[in-house]
């Protein structure tokens, strides 16, 4: 409807039916499906690295004051750099390939993850730590059984935000980079003047983003909240 009224030619502003048929065909013949799989692989790898790095950095910042004074400040600074800004550097370092894209996905999520891990560790109630210590816990066991579980609620919301950052970084990276994926498909659509494809991919991006948030993260958060007996805000 809007497309009819816009006065633009069909290829620039395709109708809804056209978009849906492209979307459907793309999913069936594998063009879109393949792109989804490629993108997913990338984000899973990048995100996992970011989470591990975030945990390690968060632990170091929490544990050692001198790391907090130095690295803690840097993390805040890095976090305010949009990850796509790293792309020129990444291309020079790694070339225009998968690594460059992975790099910006990782760097997009790492800082947020670091910050939420740090604040999660810092906010573990003193009481739990004292209890565990008097029961004989120390060292790695102490971290594993008290510090990490006690900071789970905060870490979960950190994961959720980091995922969103990683997803954005991935799309931007693929759009500029190479090697397939949803972002690349967008670029193809633009180059070939197929706006129906572009809009289809946009729909897919939105659907995946929402699904991850609602199905994975919100559910995880809810289950933790019910287990802990924390009143739900929403």
């Amino acid at each position: 409807m809007t497309s009819r009224l816009s006065g633009l030619p069909d290829f620039m502003f395709p109708s809804l039916t056209q978009v849906f048929s492209t979307l459907f065909n793309g999913l069936i013949d594998g063009q879109i499906t393949k792109a989804i799989i490629i993108s997913f692989k990338r984000i899973l790898i990048g995100f996992s690295i970011a989470v591990i790095l975030g945990f390690i950095l968060g632990y170091l910042i929490w544990r050692f004051t001198f790391v907090e004074d130095t690295l803690g400040f840097l993390v805040t600074a890095f976090q305010s750099i949009p990850s796509i800004v790293w792309f020129p550097l990444a291309i020079i370092w790694f070339g225009l390939n998968d690594f460059a894209i992975l790099f910006i996905v990782t760097i997009g999520a790492t800082w947020t993850m670091t910050m939420s891990a740090t604040s999660g560790f810092k906010n573990v109630p003193e009481l739990y730590q004292r209890v565990a210590k008097t029961l004989g816990s120390s060292g790695f066991h102490f971290i594993k059984t008290v510090i990490i579980p006690a900071s789970i609620p905060q870490i979960l919301s950190g994961l959720r935000i980091s995922w969103a950052f990683a997803w954005r970084a991935l799309m931007a990276g693929e759009l500029l980079g190479a090697g397939g994926g949803l972002g690349q498909l967008l670029e193809n659509g633009r180059a070939l003047g197929q706006m129906d494809l572009v809009i289809s991919v946009m729909i897919i991006i939105a659907v995946i983003g929402t699904m991850m948030d609602r199905v994975v993260f919100v559910r995880l958060e809810r289950s933790v909240q019910t287990k802990w007996g924390i009143n739900q805000a929403t």
């Binding site: 109630p125 008290v146 287990k227």
Partner: peptide
């Protein structure tokens, strides 16, 4: 020497 504190300090998880 185990301590029982004023608040229970049970692990909610």
């Amino acid at each position: 020497r185990v301590v029982v504190f004023q608040e229970d300090g049970l692990f909610p998880w």
